[in-house]
């Protein structure tokens, strides 16, 4: 293990130290995927890899929003409920009220963004801890879902059917669903925002030290409201993709998805206290969770509880390896004095 770390550290093309967790995660992801390919037939095909994106498109989008929030040092527990709520609204709007799909989707995105912004406002203006604010948001959104309907509503809408049933044809007979394409576009946009816009840099600054950011004359409060709004938007978009994926809205959809999203972000190397991490890491984190699930579904012989245990074990193995490889010697302040 140390040797791997040493190689990483000493190679002439040493990447920026802060990128190391991302590279380690990528390496381990590829390793896990190859192990899957060796163990199971039909695993190592491009389509299985693409399916990771197809089956997890909504989680990728949700994890994007979560990354923004966690980078500022906050947390958003409401994402799962907002995904469910968005799905419900899509289903009700298109199938019960017979409204045009684009209009419904626009409305859903607005609701999600507004919901996030409201939570952000409560966190910023009244200094309520993010955990508790978004927990209340989680209760609220889920409660509204249940109030709207206690049962699943299926979506019967031309637009949704068309988008869900068609996909982008790739060379080699592979395909990528439009949901996955949307997710990838969202990733690209988010990376750009974080790296090359003031909003993105303010997110990192607030995460590094909110007090400093404020004293440096950065709009710390506004940035915090913005990240929760972004997270709300991403959850709503994730909800639309989820509705596309399942062609239904259900008040019990996406229960616990907030934990998946947080896990993905943290596995991707972002630190929960904020200020450090990369969006691409979160995407890798989602793929890691996806690969684990895929491996277990290929295995197919496990009972439900063994599946859970296996997820835990694989997760542990992954994170432990990641830590051991990525762990740098605790060198503090070796730079100029």
């Amino acid at each position: 293990m140390t040797t791997a770390a040493d190689v990483l550290r000493r190679s002439p093309v040493t990447p920026n130290r802060r990128h190391i967790p991302v590279f380690v995660t990528l390496g381990l992801l590829l390793l896990t995927f190859s192990i899957g390919s060796v163990r199971y037939e039909n695993f190592g095909t491009p389509q299985v890899f693409l399916d990771l994106f197809i089956d997890n498109a909504f989680l990728i989008v949700v994890a994007i929003g979560m990354t923004f929030v966690i980078l500022t040092g906050g947390i958003d527990l409401s994402v799962g409920s907002v995904v469910a709520l968005s799905g419900m609204l899509c289903a009700i709007g298109t199938s019960k009220l017979q409204l045009p799909a684009p209009l419904v989707i626009l409305f859903v995105l607005l609701v999600g963004t507004g919901f996030g912004a409201a939570m952000g406002y409560m966190i910023t203006a009244f200094q309520v801890q993010p955990f508790i604010t978004t927990l209340a948001g989680m209760f609220l959104a889920r409660g509204v879902c249940l109030t709207l309907s206690e049962n699943q509503i299926s979506i019967e809408n031309g637009f949704f059917d068309a988008v869900a049933l068609n996909s982008l044809r790739l060379p080699g007979g592979n395909r990528l669903s439009w949901g996955a394409v949307t997710a990838l576009i969202a990733v690209a946009v988010a990376i750009y925002v974080l790296q090359w816009t003031r909003l993105g840099r303010n997110v990192y600054a607030v995460g590094g030290s909110e007090q400093s950011a404020m004293l440096m004359g950065l709009p710390a409060g506004r940035t915090k409201i913005q990240v929760y709004a972004i997270s709300g938007f991403c959850s709503a978009l994730g909800g639309v993709l989820f509705a596309l994926y399942t062609l239904s809205g259900d008040p019990t959809h996406a229960v616990g998805m907030e934990l998946d999203a947080i896990a993905a972000v943290v596995i991707g190397g972002t630190v929960l206290t904020g200020g450090s991490g990369y969006l691409i890491g979160s995407v890798l984190g989602v793929l890691v969770l996806g690969v684990i699930k895929t491996i277990l579904s290929f295995d197919g012989t496990l009972s439900s509880w063994w599946t859970r245990i296996a997820i835990g074990v694989l997760l542990f193995g992954f994170i432990a390896l990641q830590r051991l490889i990525g762990a740098r010697r605790k060198s503090r302040r070796s730079a100029p004095s």
Binding site: I262, V313, I319
Partner: peptide
């Protein structure tokens, strides 16, 4: 020891632990 962030370190047991409990009760 491993320096894993608490939320994720305990998430491992959160997921696997339920499985273990079901294993004990045989579902």
């Amino acid at each position: 020891r491993l320096g894993i962030q608490p939320i994720i370190a305990t998430l491992i047991l959160m997921v696997a632990g339920r499985g273990i409990a079901q294993l004990i009760t045989g579902g």
